[in-house]
Design a protein around this nucleic acid. Structure first.
Lengths: 181, 181
DNA sequence: TTATCTATGCTATACTGTGTAGCATAGATT
DNA sequence: AATCTATGCTACACAGTATAGCATAGATAA
């Protein structure tokens, strides 16, 4: 027996991922058809359903993958309690995968990303956030993640060299000041 | 000649609005079909297209209508510079049309509502917001509106009597503290 | 009331996208 | 070389969108 996946499977999935993300750069999620993804990926239409039951399922796979990477990178920095470093780490990661995150945050996948990040952040946050305010932790997490994602989406919509990473990270510091106290 | 609209036209549109909002209370936007809206509204399928070219167009009409009402109600209060009163006004209005706004904010119409509110708030905000920070006004408006809508959506998802209007408005005060300074 | 206008109802039709079934084949594993 | 399996291919069923043409019921104005 072998635990490695069949190279053909890997090839098909990667082709679908690439084609889907490329399409999301210029089309809204609901306008991207499975047929088009398959055509661009040079993978047969019926093969798509052998990997994913729907378009959303493919999107969720991509979003979960990227969210997990982002959270894994941020959590150790969060432990240092240095919010500026957290935002710097965050923004650098996003900036280094700019095209991908433009697709994820402005191409119609924003809702999926937000849901996944909320899921990943909720448990650690409940442990960490002190109950200094009367606001439920859940609401604080939702607000914080939402502002960060909205701001990131705005940033990515600006010309690439308009606001350097350092400068935008500082804006994030100010925007989420209250929430994280 | 008569400037009033044909009663049959009004009747059809109102029936479509009602049916659509009712469906959004229990179904995601993409799962609500034009056929179903028409069936529930007791309006013929083809008649739908005589009023709206698409489902999104109907949603936009409803969202624009409600957003305009909300902004018209809030703006005078904003002029008083009393943020707590603004949030109180906001929350009371939403609470009085609870079912409708549950549909609009949690039923898949949230994106449309946000876009419409941003459009309505951007110009007045550019006039009002002092440039005390290095953050572009546009980003401040986006962040503020987003947090408010996210928080409202969260509030509406809680049991109706869990957080009274007063209490939740106070949470909003705290959540947007920095943004509005 | 009568005549006119028009919004709606109804049927038929074209088109597009989703999703499945069955079989042949090319590529991977052993 | 023999076996396994992921993919390609064809065909088909189904659902939702959208338009065209005609008949009719309801609204407006004389």
């Amino acid at each position: 027996m072998s635990s490695r996946e069949d190279p053909r499977t890997i090839r098909s999935r990667e082709a679908l991922h690439r084609a889907f993300l490329a399409l999301l750069e210029s089309h809204a999620l609901e306008d991207v058809t499975i047929r088009q993804i398959c055509a661009d990926a040079d993978v047969h239409y019926t093969t798509f359903f052998r990997h994913y039951p729907s378009k959303e399922s493919l999107l969720n796979a991509i979003a979960a993958e990227q969210s997990a990477q982002l959270v894994a990178l941020s959590m150790p920095v969060v432990e240092t309690n240095d919010r500026h470093q957290v935002h710097l780490t965050l923004c650098n990661f996003i900036n280094e995968h700019r095209q991908l995150w433009v697709s994820l945050l402005t191409g119609g996948a924003a809702g999926t990303i937000k849901a996944e990040l909320l899921r990943l952040c909720m448990q650690p946050a409940v442990r960490r956030v002190p109950t200094a305010t009367s606001i439920p932790v859940e609401l604080i997490v939702i607000s914080t993640v939402s502002v960060q994602l909205e701001a990131l989406a705005w940033w990515l919509a600006q010309p690439a060299d308009r606001y350097p990473v350092q400068q935008f990270a500082a804006m994030l510091d100010e925007l989420v000041y209250t929430s994280l106290k």
